[in-house]
Write a protein that binds this DNA or RNA. Structure first.
Lengths: 328, 328
DNA sequence: CTGAAAGCGCTTACAG
DNA sequence: CTGAAAGCGCTTACAG
């Protein structure tokens, strides 16, 4: 069934049916009502492919997720994006990048023609050539938390270096002396972590201090959990973890050993995620990112581009903030 | 840029370009090579909307998720669907149902024309009228773990009643005497749980026993966590929880109180999910569902329908199995 | 307010 | 092996 069937049944032209579909005011109320009745009666659903091909907008934004589908951080980001889009009359479709090593070329192609703009989450799956391709296709694209910055694309990120600085400063001002640093990298690289580390070091230097001990996790809950012994025996009085997930792993280990937090050991994270019930259990002190603002900025920029061809920024950095919990 | 630009640049017709795109053998190798070179050089990406409109298949399956995006159970199911689809040359796009109360009408419409088949996960967002609509649109549709069974749709589910029976039998044969039952329903209905309960009761009757105490959680981790005291003071020696998530909440509470498991209290779950690090921490005994098989069945059935118009079943039930962990 | 016509970017019989 | 032509189901200037 197509728009012509509806037109015939309603005794109007397909132009009129199309107008009813798009809620145009160029239709007499009675006509509109009659056509709508036929649409409902026949259960007509317009073909989005045809609409997209004929018109310009589809009111759909496509999200390519580089991390796993169950990542708590990006899961929250996705929810926020969906929310912002809905508020503006846009739908959202997702896909997960299949083979991160080769970028997300396949996913970009799969989406082309189905959506009005791309959002690519994280750095895990996107390569420069992918971004160039989308720009070349003249499609709006936003990179969320990627280190790639390119003409024609909007990159939105948090100032990790500044966040790292903030973390060290906070621990120092709370009077901690022997400060440990838990890195996320080990098996794989972790650029965001490296930036956080750079800021952390800079603050330590500004205060004439040094990192007491370096620990190396792997950005997984269990890996930092298994570092509990190592941390305890090192005798540091505070640990900064490059991600909350690592902080929770460590906290879990410390809790099982009955360690007093933050008296015996303070733990500071980075991300401000909700993770299972952990966030209620521990009330982690952490470096927060204004995710809601960041997401709102991305969605607004893309829609302005889609609807008014208004250019967006090349790079927008957001500042972090201290989330004072009970672990520092 | 479109297929005509490519055709001109390569000095062939657009028919030939189209053939190269679809890897047709009706193209002389040299021609093919020449065209491919132009495609690569110009960075041409075919418009999926136009392809879908002109041809028939898009090699994309759309998934509508009724649960939250971070649900561990459906997250795993989605991953498996993506995997199976890829193995067969299909891509996958997701969307999350926005307003569960009204079904997923909007999401169905958004996907129409973009995909070759629908998969709807869980019962939370789908209503009979939604399924009827898709059937009426003559699109293949599979319902994964929904109670809805309708002509034209494939429903794949696990035999919850039989699983409940299996659960009770297992606890009884392990010698437990005072058996508690933790229901998932409280604030909202939970059909799957009710089926599990029916099977559980049937087994108890067959063995001439009765449920000692009923507990009422709410299918959330924290809710069963808060029931810990109540369970302990009731003096049951085993508890069956309608979902693993509830079982983990209870286990977390029991662990914090240092309760010996399964000696003092046995805990049996249902679902066999991976949940954060809990599954490594506790090694839960549970009733498993053959998810991999179920997913493979769904994907295969849909693709057979898409490609060969081969009809699929109306309902396919899978049997559960005991996953012997260390908590019973 | 309404409709005939052109066009969006492809694919696929059909003819060669 | 190659291409001209029709058609997929819509939308939107244009003319009335």
């Amino acid at each position: 069934m197509n728009i012509i069937d509806v037109a015939k049944e309603a005794g109007v032209s397909k132009t009129t049916v199309s107008r009813v579909l798009s809620n145009s005011k160029l239709v007499k109320p009675e006509t509109k009502e009659k056509v709508q009745e036929v649409i409902d009666r026949l259960g007509f659903v317009p073909n989005t492919s045809a609409q997209k091909l004929a018109g310009n907008k589809n009111y759909v934004i496509g999200i390519i997720n580089g991390s796993t589908i169950n990542d708590p951080f990006y899961g929250y980001v996705e929810e926020r994006i969906a929310l912002e889009c809905r508020n503006r009359g846009y739908g959202v479709i997702y896909t997960v990048a299949r083979d991160k090593m080769v970028g997300c070329d396949r996913e970009i192609s799969m989406f082309y023609g189905k959506i009005d703009a791309y959002i690519i989450l994280s750095d895990e799956c996107v390569q420069e050539k992918d971004v160039e391709k989308v720009v070349h296709m003249r499609m709006p694209i936003a990179l969320f938390k990627s280190k790639i910055v390119k003409n024609g694309a909007l990159s939105v990120n948090v100032d990790n270096e500044q966040g790292g600085y903030m973390a060290a400063k906070y621990l120092l001002e709370k009077g901690h002396k022997k400060i440990g640093y838990m890195h996320g990298r080990r098996l794989e690289n972790f650029d965001e972590g490296n930036e956080r580390a750079a800021g952390f070091m800079r603050a330590m230097q500004d205060y004439g201090k040094d990192i007491a001990v370096h620990f190396y996790g792997n950005r997984k809950f269990v890996d930092s959990y298994h570092l509990t012994e190592e941390v305890l025996s090192s005798n540091v009085d505070a640990v900064f973890c490059e991600t909350d997930l690592m902080a929770y792993g460590l906290l879990q280990g410390l809790a099982e050993k009955g360690v007093a937090i933050p008296e015996r050991l303070a733990v500071l994270g980075f991300d401000n995620i909700k993770f299972s019930n952990y966030e209620t259990q521990f009330s982690l002190s952490t470096i927060g990112q204004p995710l809601e603002e960041m997401v709102a900025y991305v969605v607004e920029s893309l829609i302005n581009k889609i609807e008014n061809d208004q250019p967006y920024n090349k790079l927008k950095l957001f500042e972090t903030n201290i989330v004072a919990g009970k672990t520092v």
